[in-house]
Design a protein around this nucleic acid. Structure first.
Length: 232
DNA sequence: AAATTTATCAACCGCGACCGA
DNA sequence: ATCGGTCGCGGTTGATAAATT
């Protein structure tokens, strides 16, 4: 049983961060053997890695035409929209974002966008140059997210020094934050309102509807003609 | 300047689906 | 029908960078 053997060799298997030499070796062998049969590829390459680890490293980091930079506003919008539509179907969402892996999207959503989704539990209103903010019944989790985990909302001090907007609802609940925490909320609120206007600007852009958008076949992300590496 | 906390993201893990023998 | 091998997905962890006190 190969799995058993692999398990028995487990102690010899390397884990954790890949080093450059491993990457180079993996790239060579994927180029030779193709993107399949990862267990045998791992064995034949001599890498002390599981096939699974090799596959993951290749798909999430080494394969050509991956985008490694920051997510654009447009990509963020698509992720939010599709997540709302499909839930945590990361691989499915990734299909709509060429160059982005499911893992990347999942991480991005967890670290950046979940906060905004939580924010939808807030009642948020703009008016007379003032912003009122208060919780929906029983939900304080969003504030905690945006103020870090270091303290519960109950620990906040009672006087806000922030005059850019009045946290009326928080005051009402005795939940006004410390200056640092208030600044965080303020930054976050302005970020949120920027995003909303950004989203509005794109609303008329029919071709970018992620639910109907189909990758352009003329752009082949597997085109190796401009190979990123040389094989000796 | 040092200690502590928080954010980020690559990598791991478990599980289920699929396929061929 | 079932068994082993493989693949892919989604949740979670852990290392480390960045921010804050």
């Amino acid at each position: 049983m190969a799995n058993y053997q692999a398990a028995m060799q487990g102690e010899k298997m390397r884990k954790g961060t890949w080093i450059e030499e491993e990457d180079e070796r993996l790239i060579s062998f994927v180029t030779l053997m193709g993107e399949r049969r990862w267990d045998s590829l791992a064995r034949e390459s001599g890498l002390q890695r599981s096939g699974k680890s090799c596959r993951l490293r290749w798909l999430n980091y080494l394969r050509p035409n991956l985008k490694h930079g920051h997510m654009s506003i447009e990509e963020e919008r698509i992720i939010l929209q599709l997540h709302e539509l499909w839930g945590n179907k990361w691989s499915r969402i990734a299909q709509r974002l060429p160059g982005r892996t499911d893992n990347k999207i999942k991480n991005y959503w967890r670290t950046h966008l979940r906060k905004k989704e939580q924010a939808e539990n807030f009642h948020y209103r703009l008016g007379n140059g003032q912003q009122d903010l208060f919780f929906q019944k029983g939900d304080r989790s969003a504030l905690k997210y945006n103020c870090g985990n270091k303290g519960s909302v109950e620990e906040f001090s009672s006087n806000s020094t922030n005059d850019t907007f009045d946290v009326v609802g928080l005051s009402d609940l005795g939940l006004t934050s410390s200056p640092y925490e208030t600044r965080l909320i303020s930054d976050w609120m302005s970020e949120l309102s920027n995003d909303q206007s950004e989203i509005k600007r794109h609303e008329g852009c029919k071709s970018l509807d992620p639910t109907t958008w189909i990758p352009d076949d003329s752009i082949n992300i597997w085109d190796h003609s401009s190979s990123l590496w040389k094989i000796d």
